[in-house]
Amino acid sequence: MNMTSLKYMIEVEKCGSITNAAKKLMIGQPNLSKAIKDLELEVGFSIFVRSHKGAIPTKRGQEFIYLAKKTLTQYDALEHFCSDSAENTVIFSLFAPRTNYISQAFSNFVRRIGSSQKLHIHFHESSSMTAIHRIASSHHALGIIQYQDVQEEYYISTLKLRQLGYESLFSFEYMITLAGNHPLADYKEITPSMLKKYTEIALEDDGDNPLQPKKGKGGKRQIFIYDRGSQFELLTSIPGAYMFTSPIPDKLLKAHGLIQKDYPCPYGKLQDVLIYPKGYKFSNTEKLFLHELKETIHTLKKFHP
């Protein structure tokens, strides 16, 4: 058994067929098929069920692929650790929701790293279930998930089932973000009826973002966006636009001429929770990021207790 065979197997599982995997790997389909058959002979069981629809992992094959992914991740980390290029390199990876205060903390964290150091950093904005899957599969060490209070039992049981550790970071309610010159800017409290004639900018996520608005509200003006980078531009350029968001650092609000208002949220509070492999020990780099994250949250709590 070698690492190349394991990589081939994982690509077949990812692509759903040997033909598609061969194209992705840029090798001949017969050669890939033989490599998979040789691997199955070596391990003593069928990894895939082959049909005209493609290649589907068997039950034991699924377990083997899961272990192989963990092995390859650890092997890659070991190779990187032993290589000369890893010396003086800051290695960091994070899966997190599309939340402005986390991005602010991440920026502060990067600024704290010496300019002479090499960087190898991955910052993924994703759904909570994607983060759980990635951390549980040992592809990444740190993740932040976000859910409503009413979803807590489901998420905590999922984390325990996937053998992940977790730590509560921040509990908050929806806020309305709008331009400083918005017609509702001077109102102390904004109610749902006051928003009917204005345009909501709604961040569309990949499946389970609790900040995602409910669709199908007749007559409501909504613009769905799929890239958080455009939200501030739209809020300031579209007359009367508003957006439901988590609390945003004051520095960012001032930079874009925005304000935030409390909103009577019917769904209760939202929870941001740090997740990691059970028993995992944070590196000094990860500790630095978590310090910046908690400092940012501490500052937010002063304005949004």
Results as ranks from 00 to 15, higher is better:
Tyr242Arg: 08
Glu87Asp: 15
Phe81Met: 08
Glu200Leu: 06
Met175Leu: 12
Gln222Ser: 14
Asn108Gly: 03
Tyr226His: 12
Glu125Phe: 10
Ile176Cys: 01
Asn108Val: 01
Ala179Arg: 01
Pro30Leu: 00
Leu195Val: 11
Glu173Lys: 14
Arg112His: 10
Lys188Asn: 07
Gln163Asn: 12
Ser5Ile: 04
Ile248Trp: 09
Phe289Leu: 06
Leu25Phe: 08
Leu274Gly: 05
Val12Ala: 02
Ser51Phe: 12
Glu233Gln: 14
Asp227Trp: 13
Ile132Trp: 02
Phe64Glu: 09
Leu274Lys: 05
Ile223His: 12
Ile36Asp: 04
Ile135His: 09
Thr245Trp: 05
Arg50Ser: 11
Leu235Ser: 00
Phe106Glu: 03
Val273Asp: 05
Glu286Asp: 11
Ser103His: 06
Gln29Cys: 03
Ala105Arg: 07
Tyr154Gly: 00
Gly279Ala: 06
Lys70Pro: 04
Ala96His: 15
Tyr267Val: 10
Ile47Glu: 02
Arg134Ile: 06
Ser138Gln: 09
Ser115Pro: 03
Ala131Thr: 07
Ala22Phe: 06
Leu252Cys: 12
Glu233Ile: 11
Ser171His: 10
Ile223Ser: 07
Ala241Pro: 15
Phe172Met: 07
Arg228Ser: 12
Ser171Glu: 09
Tyr154Ile: 12
Ile156Phe: 07
His133Gln: 14
Ile275Lys: 02
Ser107Pro: 02
Leu25Gln: 06
Thr130Gly: 01
Tyr154Asn: 08
Arg111Gly: 02
Ala105Pro: 05
Asp272Leu: 15
Leu32Cys: 10
Asp205Gln: 03
Lys251Phe: 05
Ser157Leu: 09
Ser168Thr: 10
Glu63Pro: 00
Ser17Glu: 05
His80Val: 08
Glu42Ser: 15
Phe172Gln: 00
Glu40Phe: 12
Gly207Pro: 02
Gly279Lys: 13
Phe95Ile: 04
Lys261Arg: 13
Gln151Ala: 14
Ile10Arg: 13
Gly16Gln: 04
Leu39His: 13
Phe232His: 13
Phe282Gln: 12
Lys23Ser: 08
Gln231Val: 14
Asp186Pro: 01
Lys302His: 11
Gln222Thr: 14
Leu270Cys: 02
Pro249Met: 13
Glu189Thr: 06
Phe64Pro: 01
Thr58Gly: 05
Thr58Ala: 05
Lys70Tyr: 04
Leu274Trp: 07
